[in-house]
Design a protein around this nucleic acid. Structure first.
Lengths: 215, 215, 215, 215
DNA sequence: AATGAATGAGCCTTCATTCAT
DNA sequence: GATGAATGAAGGCTCATTCAT
């Protein structure tokens, strides 16, 4: 909600509820305990199939306390979703910004995605499942995040497209061409249909990505 | 959604409930009315968020009648899922089998996927959402279907890999490389984030697919 | 909802749910069991303080069954309210219409009110408490009932006012002057602050009513 | 609602919580802020439908603080009820005591009621709604107040009854006959069914009251 | 005195499924 | 085969009240 976007680990949107002073610490701890428990449940069974009682049980928190910190079950899912998306995005963008050529840039997107997903399997599964029903506020926040991300990535690539080092194709199709294969593989891995972690195959998919968009 | 399954290679799970004789026809009609209604609901709101009452209302069928023809709400979802998957698979395989070169074969997979998905948006959304909780019986049936499909496709491709016309990479990675981009694009289209139908961009993705696996 | 207004004992509004044929009877029985139980609870504790469980317990009906026949707890209260009001109104009006002089008419309103209230203490308490939150549909129905009642009563009285046998005062004030005392006494009786039943004092209040509006 | 209780003849129930010394003033201010906020809420939605959070929000007081000053939500309602009743009663009694004839006395009761109710609409609505569940202590206090009031009023009237200037009827029926019409009209005004304020029609109802009990 | 986090019982309602007719 | 009434276990959420700070 504020300006800082990258590397942030704190939940977005919820920041309004943060309090300064002595109890802020234990408050944040409880919030995180709830988010952690919810992630585990959501990843395992989906948001709808997870009951609030499942979360309170796992987080060891009372119903009332949970609702003191979150608006609703779906509010937890939204906070988690935005937190995860922010993490994934900022990881990719941060790495991209340290690259100095079209090829390393394109490959870095895939490499970072593969690594993050392999290291955060639960969160990846949760984000991939896409069963969060977004409220208007959350939708706005996501749009803001996506906008920033897409704009930053496109600005980075645009110069190489302009130089003729990358193909000139519809804007809509870069992401599918670059990320589609690793994402599809990841989906199979998450569902148990593929054995090796995405990280183990990252070089192959990174090469394919570059191959798909280079001139 | 109403086009009859073509080239179905195996009876559906639910076929055990089919009855021979004079009433079979009206029975089948009612079954299909339920399946059609369920697809609309599932595609619009997801399986969990659809109530049996939603389906009976839309299908104009009584509760008792519905349960006379299906085991459970999830049973309907399974039947629908298997029906859709079979349709999609057999379409792809049928087209592939009519191809006479590695390049046309690989491209045909993408082309057929793009066309089917664009022509069966509701079913595509339902299959993509992946919110069907599979019973053991259904899981088995799906495995059988997948196995046949994968085996058939691989047999087709294997000869070209052997001839050195296609890259030799881990078996797990062919599908992601070939279908990943079009699937990723389709997901964006289904969610409203991309405007043009997959069919409109099929050539681009077909070329990319061949490019990704050719030697 | 239909034309018949007087002496009707059937719940209004709910009539849309009535079914002809063999099961209609047991359906109506269950509906009435729920209404009776609800009346007892509402009269004793108020609508808000009565839980749906209180009603199901007393009516010996399952939760689901209750909700199969009524929209909500408040829907029960509305049905009951309209039923009671209809009974009260039609009793008063029916008796009034059999009177042949201003004096007997005015007195009959009070007498009938006193008798009905004494004979239907629970319903009277429920109606008097006024804690039913009316939906738009119910509000409309009540308006319709009130309109019919007020119009009919005023038409009856108007001729005597015109003849100079009754005072000519603001239309708003006839009901308070005629019914106010007996209603106030009834409220005290219902709350336990007065011992004798309204019926026991009806003559006194009937005389006072006539005295208050005669010329 | 904010006019201080005049001629209060006994301390309120809640007075036990009053503290002497330097903070008494700010304490009383906070108490009153809570009572004012509660009255607004109770009048608008009823006691049951008002949550403690509604009150703390409107009064700008913390939960803990509220519970430091009141026993419970219902305790607030009781305090408010007794405060309002005391105000209404003492107004009526005070005015009655300044009258020097049966006629002016009876009329003054109605006139004062009409004026007070019109000037204190929120409190009148709250008292009229009668949704305060009284604790034993509060019930006792109310009985005491009522007793004093009734006794004082009866003593005043008794002499005129004895002199034959007022009718001799059951003790229970004086109040309904005198106050019933104006109360019934007030109820209609509070519910929006009557337009003119009770104060606007006070003379009519005062005359009727005297007419109802004079010899 | 003041604060607001924490508690957990209880509320209304939904819903998949069964079963008598 | 068809119907829809009946069931009761959950589910998400609210709320009065307590208590540590």
């Amino acid at each position: 909600m504020s300006a800082k976007t990258r590397e942030s680990t704190k939940p977005m949107l919820a920041s309004i509820k943060e309090h300064p002073g002595k109890r802020a610490d234990s408050t944040a701890r409880l919030r995180q305990r709830v988010l952690d428990a919810a992630l585990t449940c959501f990843a395992a069974a989906g948001v709808e199939a997870t009951s609030v009682a499942d979360i309170t049980r796992l987080a060891n928190v009372s119903t009332g306390s949970l609702y003191h910190h979150f608006d609703s079950k779906n509010g937890i899912a939204e906070a988690l979703y935005l937190q995860g998306l922010d993490q994934l995005n900022s990881g990719v963008l941060g790495r991209l910004n340290r690259c100095r050529s079209a090829r390393t840039g394109v490959r870095s997107v895939v490499l970072q995605y593969a690594e993050w997903v392999s290291a955060n399997r639960e969160m990846a599964g949760f984000l991939y499942a896409g069963d969060v029903v977004m409220s208007d506020a959350a939708r706005l926040e996501r749009k803001r995040m996506y906008g920033r991300q897409i704009r930053a990535v496109f600005e980075w690539f645009a110069r190489y497209v302009a130089r003729g080092e990358m193909r000139h194709i519809p804007a809509d199709t870069y992401v599918p061409l670059i990320s589609g294969p690793i994402q599809e593989y990841t989906a199979r891995w998450l569902s148990g249909d593929a054995q090796r972690s995405p990280a183990a195959l990252k070089a192959l998919f990174a090469d394919a990505a570059w191959n798909a968009v280079k001139t």
